[in-house]
């Protein structure tokens, strides 16, 4: 079976659930304890694209930030796509995700990405209103996923979608 390597960065504000999302996807595990990421955590996972082709995702879980500094910009180097993560219980994390996306597009051009609105298991504490959610759907359309790293809801689906987008780009070039 052929294997293609692909670097994917996971970005977003602090404590939105980036590490938990990767941990859920890679090890199917979740911990309630919040542990701040310093620098970057690198892990790998494989996604089967076809019977003969799989994508090895090298996942760069980058420390939470609202704006990339010089060091974090270095972490982004060579990525094929990225995962934007925001926390539904904190509205400010959505603006942070938008800001990071703008920065990425300014330095790396348009790359495949998915937008994860995380912590769907805490709906009762959500700050995102139905109207704001509607707006996000219009903004990110099929790249928006409402996820829960805690329950695993839509995490695998979101990353599989990103793998598809990356494969399409690798095979057919930027659309």
């Amino acid at each position: 079976m052929n294997q293609v390597n692909s670097k994917v960065c996971v970005v977003g504000d602090f404590a939105v659930g980036k590490t938990s999302t990767v941990e859920r996807f890679v090890n199917n595990h979740f911990s309630d304890k919040y542990l701040t990421t310093i620098g970057v955590k690198v892990d790998t996972a494989e996604v089967d694209l076809t019977q003969d082709l799989k994508l090895k995702l090298i996942l760069w879980d980058i420390a939470g930030t609202t704006e990339f500094k010089h060091v974090e910009m270095a972490y982004l180097r060579g990525m094929s796509g990225y995962i934007l993560v925001a926390d539904g219980t904190r509205l400010t994390t959505i603006s942070a995700a938008r800001e990071l996306k703008t920065q990425i597009e300014a330095t790396h051009g348009e790359l495949p990405f998915v937008f994860l609105l995380n912590k769907s298991d805490l709906q009762h504490a959500w700050e995102v209103s139905d109207r704001q959610r509607e707006k996000l759907v219009n903004e990110f359309s099929s790249e928006l996923f409402v996820t829960s790293a805690k329950t695993g809801d839509h995490v695998a689906g979101a990353i599989a979608r990103l793998a598809e987008l990356i494969a399409e780009r690798e095979l057919f070039g930027p659309q």
Partner: peptide, 10 residues
């Protein structure tokens, strides 16, 4: 030259 200060691997 690239310097990556904190890279954690499993």
């Amino acid at each position: 030259t690239e310097v990556l200060p904190f890279v954690t691997t499993p």
